[in-house]
Structure formats: structure tokens, C-alpha cells
């Protein structure tokens, strides 16, 4: 027994010594866990959440997309290239015909000085050589010399009037149609606003509100709204609500025929009721309804209201 004790004690000592050497000597450094803040939102809130970009910096309030600071003006299409706000649009006719507008401008600028000069010259030439002979010409020249003065005045006063008739109408030429084409890239005006922001902010820009995340009843209503062909007489009717009870199977098909739950004295009521029941039947497999929540939608009462289509 003594030998047993000795051997056993020695073995235990050896195992303990081995354990002291090899057992984990690393201190336990547990880092404190990160806190995750959570918010509780209702179904309605969830249905109206607007989609944002996950990595976007958090802004205090959603800002519209703005590229230049000026008066607020939204952008229709965001894909086209941005240009400065200068309207560079040149009439396409200029490419075909040499620019005419400068000429009337010259006439406008010059009238006091140069125009009197050419008129005396012909006058002198004509007057010196065939003075007695050609009466009509001389008279004509006289008339000319007299006339130009009021004419130049007229020109100076109203140059645009002369420009307008002078402007040639662009003739349509099928062979030069290529020249008529606007070969610039599609452009758009820069969006302007109070502050510059190039990136869509968190949760706006193109938020897809209702279509993104509807709860089941929203989805059902949207589907019925698509299917309901509102009869002509019913669409204008006031106080005409058709209440329909729908019972579903688990796979989204109808368990029983939809039942009318109310009656009305309106002359168009019967028509409206028929159309509503037809809408429920034609849309029949409502397979988008989640089977897990079958209890929530297996028996539904929907109000078909022509004013805002309907409420459920």
C-alpha cells in the first residue's frame, strides 16, 4: 500500500506540474460587446420607409440632389451630362446658311456716317455727264437722293423690322439633312439648390415608398386595385361602398366564392358589387401572401370604395 501511495502521489505531482506548464496561461481579455441600438416601428412605418443608400453619411435631413447653388430647380433626367446654365442652343439653320443677323447690325451702326457718302457720288457723276439728256434718270436720282434720307432714318429707328424680312426661311434639303442634325451629346441643366450635394442622401432621392415594403394587407389591396375595373356609372357615385368578404386557402387561392357583405339603395350598387366580386375572382391566386402569416389573411373583409378605389 505504501508503494501505491508513493507512486500515486508522484504521478499526481507530475500531472499537476505538466498542467502548470501547458495549461492556458493567457489572461482572459474579454472586450466589452458593441452596443446595437434598435428602434421599434409599426407596420405602417415600415410600409412607408423610403429606400436609401446603406453607406451614405448620415444627414440631418434628406437633401435634394443639387449640383449648383442657385434658385431651386429639380432635374428631370439624371443620366445626361451636366452643362453650365448658359443656353448654348444655336438655331440649326445657321449651319446651312451663313449668318445673316450681323449685316443688319452694321447697317444699324453706320447709318449717320457712311451712307451719305455713296449718295453724292452717283449724284455728281450723273449730274456732270448726261445732265440735260436723261431726265427720267436724273429725276429718278433726285428722287433717290431725296428718298434715302428718310429711308436711313427709318433703318436707324427700326432695324429689327428690316432683319425679319431679310432672314431667309431655312429651305428643307433632304441631301443636307445630316448637317441639320444636332450632333452634341444629350445634355441637361445642372440641378440647382441652396446647398451643394452630389450624392443621394440616406433615405431619399428615389425612395420607393409603398412598392418596396408593404405589409400583406397593403399588397392585397394594391392587387385588388389593379384588378378592379370600376364601371362607368360607379366611378362618379358618392356614398357607394361595396364590402366583400374573402376567404383564402393557404396557397392564396379562394376558399369560397367572395361574399357581398352589405347592400345599397344606389342604382349602380348592383353593378359595382358585381364588378367587385369579379375583381376578386379574376385575381384569384393571391400567391404573394406569405403562408407563414396565413392566420392573418385567411378571412379578410375589404371595402371597395370608388372614391379612393377602396379601403380594407
Amino acid at each position: 500500500m505504501k508503494a501505491g501511495w508513493t507512486i500515486s502521489a508522484v504521478l499526481h505531482g507530475a500531472v499537476l506540474a505538466w498542467g502548470l506548464v501547458t495549461f492556458v496561461t493567457k489572461p482572459l481579455n474579454a472586450t466589452p460587446p458593441e452596443f446595437i441600438s434598435t428602434d421599434i416601428i409599426s407596420d405602417a412605418d415600415f410600409s412607408q420607409i423610403t429606400q436609401g443608400i446603406r453607406s451614405a453619411p448620415k444627414a440631418e435631413a434628406p437633401k435634394p440632389l443639387v449640383e449648383k447653388i442657385a434658385e431651386a430647380r429639380p432635374v428631370e433626367e439624371q443620366t445626361a451630362k451636366v452643362i453650365d446654365n448658359k443656353p448654348e442652343i444655336v438655331p440649326t439653320a445657321d449651319q446651312v446658311q451663313p449668318p445673316k443677323p450681323p449685316e443688319p447690325k452694321k447697317a444699324e451702326a453706320k447709318p449717320p456716317a457712311p451712307q451719305p457718302q455713296p449718295k453724292p457720288e452717283p449724284k455728281q457723276a450723273f449730274a456732270k455727264e448726261p445732265a440735260p439728256k436723261v431726265d427720267p434718270i436724273a429725276e429718278a436720282i433726285k428722287k433717290d437722293t431725296k428718298k434715302p434720307e428718310p429711308k436711313t432714318q427709318q433703318k436707324a429707328e427700326t432695324p429689327p423690322k428690316k432683319v425679319e424680312p431679310a432672314k431667309p426661311q431655312p429651305k428643307f434639303d433632304a441631301t443636307r439633312i445630316a448637317a441639320l442634325l444636332d450632333k452634341r451629346d444629350p445634355q441637361r441643366k445642372a440641378a440647382t439648390g441652396d446647398t451643394l450635394s452630389n450624392t443621394p442622401s440616406l433615405g431619399t432621392a428615389a425612395g420607393r415608398a409603398v412598392t418596396l415594403s408593404q405589409n400583406e394587407l397593403d399588397a392585397l389591396r394594391a392587387r385588388l386595385r389593379e384588378c378592379w375595373n370600376v364601371p362607368v356609372g360607379v366611378a362618379e357615385a358618392r356614398d357607394l361602398v361595396v364590402t366583400v368578404r374573402i376567404q383564402f386557402k393557404q396557397d392564396g387561392s379562394l376558399q369560397t366564392d367572395p361574399r357581398l357583405m352589405n347592400s345599397g339603395s344606389h342604382p349602380a350598387f348592383q353593378v359595382a358589387a358585381e364588378s367587385a366580386l369579379r375583381a376578386v375572382r379574376t385575381c384569384a391566386p393571391y400567391s404573394f401572401l406569405p403562408a407563414a402569416k396565413y392566420e392573418a389573411w385567411k378571412d379578410v373583409i375589404v371595402d371597395f370604395d370608388p372614391r379612393d378605389m377602396f379601403r380594407g
Binding site: 500500500m1 508503494a3 501505491g4 501511495w5 507512486i7 500515486s8 502521489a9 504521478l11 499526481h12
Partner: peptide, 14 residues
């Protein structure tokens, strides 16, 4: 107790 157990085990085996 463990030391005792092993002492007995060795003793009995022998």
C-alpha cells in the same frame, strides 16, 4: 481522493 484512488489502483493491480 484522486491520489488515494490511484494508490489503491496501483496496490490492487499489483
Amino acid at each position: 481522493a484522486s491520489i488515494w484512488v490511484w494508490a489503491i489502483v496501483i496496490d490492487k493491480t499489483l
